[in-house]
């Protein structure tokens, strides 16, 4: 582990990468971190592995199955009908009372 560029240690950089990855990229702190990463093989490898890890999760997200969509639409139609029936029952009851 090294403490060379801009007096930031690798541990501080790793914490920073985890917390701020993809955000706040123009802050002074971020510029110092970027500078450190550019000069430090440990941190550039850490940053690279973090991006690849996130990429793995992103590329392994499934699509919504057609059958599941159909089931969902059917379920909502039934729920909508039962809500309307309930409302008209309540209206009917309140009219008669």
């Amino acid at each position: 582990m090294t403490e060379h560029a801009h007096n930031i240690s690798c541990i501080e950089v790793w914490r920073y990468i985890c917390r701020h990855h993809g955000e706040d990229e123009n802050s002074k702190e971020c510029q110092a971190v970027k500078q450190h990463i550019a000069e430090c093989p440990h941190c550039s490898a850490y940053c690279d592995s973090m991006e690849k890890m996130i990429g793995l999760f992103r590329s392994n997200s499934p699509t919504f199955p057609e059958q599941a969509k159909k089931n969902l639409v059917d379920l909502l139609h039934e729920a909508l009908i039962s809500t309307k029936d309930k409302q008209s029952d309540e209206t009917g009851n309140s009219t008669t009372t």
Binding site: M1, I11, W14, C18, P41, H42, C43, A45, Y46, D48, S49, K52, M53, G55, L56, F57, S59, N60
Partner: peptide, 28 residues
């Protein structure tokens, strides 16, 4: 519990190339 290994080991250039798709899913 969240500190990395002492010497950072770089990841494969393409992590998907050597591990089978089913295995990747299981690991994730």
């Amino acid at each position: 519990s969240v500190m990395p290994e002492k010497t950072i080991t770089p990841w494969e250039e393409s992590p998907l190339s050597r591990v089978e798709q089913g295995e990747i899913r299981r690991l994730l």
